[in-house]
Design a protein around this nucleic acid. Sequence first.
DNA 1: GTTTATTCTGTGTACGTTCACAGACTCTCA
DNA 2: TGAGAGTCTGTGAACGTACACAGAATAAAC
Lengths: 340, 340
Amino acid sequence: MVSVPARRKRATIHDVAVEAGVSRGTVSRVVNDEPYVSANARAAIEAAIEKVGYVPNNAARSLVMQRSQAVGFIVHEPHSLFLEDPNIGDILLGANTALSHADYQMVCLIIDSDRDTARVARYLSGGFVDGVIIVSARQNDPITRVVEKLGLPTAFVGHPPDLRDLPFVGIDNRTSARALTERLLDTGRRRVGMIAAALDRDSGADRLAGFTDALGDAFDSNLVASVPLYAYAAGVAGMRELLQRSPEIDGVFAASDAVAAGALEALRDAGRRVPEDVGVVGFDDSAWARRTQPPLSTVHQPASGLGAGAAELVLQQLRGEATPVGGLLLQTPIVWRGSA
Amino acid sequence: MVSVPARRKRATIHDVAVEAGVSRGTVSRVVNDEPYVSANARAAIEAAIEKVGYVPNNAARSLVMQRSQAVGFIVHEPHSLFLEDPNIGDILLGANTALSHADYQMVCLIIDSDRDTARVARYLSGGFVDGVIIVSARQNDPITRVVEKLGLPTAFVGHPPDLRDLPFVGIDNRTSARALTERLLDTGRRRVGMIAAALDRDSGADRLAGFTDALGDAFDSNLVASVPLYAYAAGVAGMRELLQRSPEIDGVFAASDAVAAGALEALRDAGRRVPEDVGVVGFDDSAWARRTQPPLSTVHQPASGLGAGAAELVLQQLRGEATPVGGLLLQTPIVWRGSA
DNA sequence: GTTTATTCTGTGTACGTTCACAGACTCTCA
DNA sequence: TGAGAGTCTGTGAACGTACACAGAATAAAC
């Protein structure tokens, strides 16, 4: 007669205790690396753990410890953005690496509809996570409110404009834009313009401010075209506008790589050579940057660093440490390629 | 004197019971939508839940139910792939959507080093997840072995060559390649070649097989160039080789969009016009396809469908249902753009 | 040899659920 | 009226762990 190979029950701390001839408490102390365990007992318990194949039950541990050892990673974007924004994948990876290093698990929470919002809010209230990382929060975001009400340790990647006092990690758009523009000026360009984009966002406004900083007295508002989005088509339109207004233009700072790629097309159409006639720089070091002809000089987004930084900010709070006020601003190295 | 705003304790099922004047059991029945609850009691309990802000504690529930309501999403790739492969993000999204619809949570487990392998193996053994979705498993993968040993419900996105009997979801590379090639032939091309890539992978071999199927007797091995990787540079090299061997070539099936983009460059260098002189088709419908000049005709990868399919496969096993043998092969629509 | 400190160990309780069981209350029908 | 079926409700376990506490063993000091 063949016995049914019933799903073998997992070994508990009690099984280990019996096997090693000690009590639950002592096993618990060994498992949690606490002092006051004799060498004998420790050896016996370690052997017993190995023998019965013991792995601590997380649910039981969570229940008694009142924490889950998990951190939520909330992305509040339409699905399509995951495709378009190559950074989100790297942010996720960076956060995941930092969290797992600290023995925390990362749970992906993706919000794409109002139904999702409710589900995630419920999830957060359920104590499933000890903290959250929020990517691209919206202004007056319901999730942000839930998190605030629960007092959950939080870190934002990029910060919502209405919540300057919560911990966040971002890049210093203004300083980076300034450095990039200065480098462009150093190559001998005389008439440098900018295609500014998304001025309703912090990032867009700060990049323009950095450009203005770099030009100082030489700033000429006639050399700035403003487009609504960080998009290819917007770049084409913005460049045409600049060419019309200032045909003698010889340098362009595009607010993003996609915008820069569009600018390249408009310049090509207008018969200008890049970089000979006009130098072009982008921002983001996205996939665009390496695929344009010539490849773009741009500013590298330290995406995985952003993720790791946000994770670290959450972990700090979890450990009860203070977080830096005003957020964490990351360095953004300039990548010089062929376009300027 | 100001009282310390102590972290407010979460309401338990017991609090609800007291508030509603019933017992824990009855509340549990309402929460879990079980029958045999009077209308009175139900109303009182629902009001009480609202009032005390009760949300079930997952750890306690997991402990007694012996399950976690979570599914692991395992990606076994170097970090860089997350950047390069736009599909992984969509697969993740598709899986996440399907799982959360069934009230399961998705936990991201990314393996990038041997240390990660050990960590994830330990995690899986810890009963943190009820099932797993594995993306791009390797041959003889230690994680696959752990999963098998634990008898964890599993689904692969794309299947490792050595595990044909486990549930998987993939695309029908062969049929898709055949359909694409036939369509290319239908446009009147006489000498159609292929840049085959990654023949050591299922996908690469199947795409070549589909090409061969479509050509039938007209197949000419002289018109096939084989390159090691799905990469741009490989596409350039492959196309040069084909042009040298068969200068009269007027159609090319590139094994991926990246390869096709490389082929486009090689054709441009050789002074051939696309699509007038040579028709080019790619595979994947990746970001490349829309950025080349002209944009590529290609086969669309139903990435989010793959994720959703894998999730469904795991959920089926979780419900105790049978899974389709031989895996799930998804339809791949042809996207006809300017390159052929 | 007694006291005192130090190291080690076992036990009971609590965490917040679900589930099986037993009992109470309503109906219906003979 | 009483038996039986169907509906509803409360109670006591159990899940596997951490932690506080009490107590035993050992070592050190007088």
